[in-house]
């Protein structure tokens, strides 16, 4: 979070995302929101609360419970010149519209020989931690990062929650934004004038010498906490917020790993076939001769996310697991 002096205002991640959505609707007449319960109910996570009153039913559109239908409608609207911002309640449900995203949104530019583009933004809630059980708690952003033709974002900070949307909406191709559900209540202060941010680069959230911790989204804060504890133990960890999972910012990752010679990847997705696996492979491909230790991952246990609190906590990456992994790769 920025600590620059000029006019800081208190906010939450939820409010920051909402501020981004409001800006989009205010500045871009072609923009509209569409999704389940986003209007009268104010959104499953209350992100769009109050927006129906402000912008009216033409631009805040409640949809039937049919992901394939309304995401498909969004794709069509985008092709026809609108700037749809579609909310999918949780990424678990996005599998119902996976065909629309993968076979239509991601391919139209390619299959039309560049005649059509699909400037759609699809927001999805992701992640576990609120005892929503196995069908509402998964982290599938890594899967989507597999798909050429779309961009995948994971805003972890108030600034990114606020500023990624505008840039995403102005991208001529489909952009998926994954908002971790544990972040919505996160409070903090933000520059009153905060606005659009880039959606290309990873950012060093904490510089360090001994090990690179590569993470994104909800795991960023656990990782930063772990880094603070490790610092007290004499281990100086660098924390990188990936921000964009597709395309990955290889340059920032490699620069950090070449400096620290060690990498621990923290990813709330399952380990097998995950974005963490992709990052590890890229490090081996591009920075092998700079490595001092095996690349290590802290991922979610390979189980459906459990409902009981203690089991859910045990399944997810935690500060303690991150600290243990780091201590192992630095040999302490």
């Amino acid at each position: 979070m920025s600590e620059r002096a000029p006019e800081q205002v208190a906010t939450t991640y939820r409010e920051a995302v909402r501020a981004g959505l409001r800006e989009a609707l205010q500045r871009e007449p072609r923009a509209f929101l569409m999704g389940e319960d986003i209007g009268r109910y104010g959104g499953c996570y209350a992100v769009t609360k109050g927006m129906l009153d402000e912008f009216g039913p033409e631009r805040i559109r409640d949809t039937p419970l049919s992901e394939s239908g309304f995401v498909g409608a969004g794709i069509g609207a985008a092709m026809a010149g609108m700037r749809p911002i579609v909310e999918v309640m949780t990424c678990n449900f996005s599998l119902l519209c996976l065909d629309q995203i993968l076979n239509n949104a991601a391919t139209i530019r390619h299959m039309s020989g560049g005649q059509f583009s699909v400037p759609i933004v699809i927001r999805m809630a992701t992640g576990a931690g609120r005892q929503l059980a196995a069908q509402h708690s998964h982290s599938l952003e890594g899967w989507y990062a597999h798909i050429p033709g779309i961009r995948v974002l994971a805003p972890a900070t108030l600034e990114d929650g606020r500023g990624m949307l505008w840039t995403a909406m102005n991208d001529p191709d489909p952009v998926l934004i994954f908002e971790n559900i544990m972040l919505y209540n996160m409070g903090g202060t933000i520059d009153a004038a905060a606005g659009a941010v880039d959606i290309d680069r990873a950012v060093v959230r904490r510089p360090g010498r001994d090990v690179s911790l590569l993470t994104y989204g909800g795991s960023l804060w656990k990782t930063l906490e772990a880094a603070a504890t490790l610092k007290e133990q004499g281990i100086d960890a660098e924390v990188i917020d990936l921000r964009t999972l597709r395309p990955l910012d290889d340059a920032t990752i490699m620069e950090s790993v070449r400096k620290t010679r060690r990498a621990v990847i923290v990813d709330e997705g399952w380990r097998s076939g995950s974005i963490s696996a992709e990052i590890a492979t890229r490090i081996v491909e591009q920075a092998f001769w700079s490595l001092d230790a095996p690349i290590t991952r802290v991922c979610t246990e390979e189980v459906p996310i459990p409902y009981p609190k203690h089991l859910e906590d045990a399944a997810l990456p935690s500060r303690e697991k991150i600290e243990a992994a780091v201590r192992k790769v630095v040999g302490r």
């Binding site: 700079s290 490595l291 001092d292 095996p294 630095v330």
Partner: peptide
């Protein structure tokens, strides 16, 4: 790998070195 590369650059026989890593 990083140690091996540096050792090669400096012509160092790694068997003479005591390791401090994992």
């Amino acid at each position: 790998p990083a140690a091996r590369k540096l050792a090669a650059e400096r012509g160092i026989d790694v068997t003479q070195i005591r390791g401090s890593g994992p």
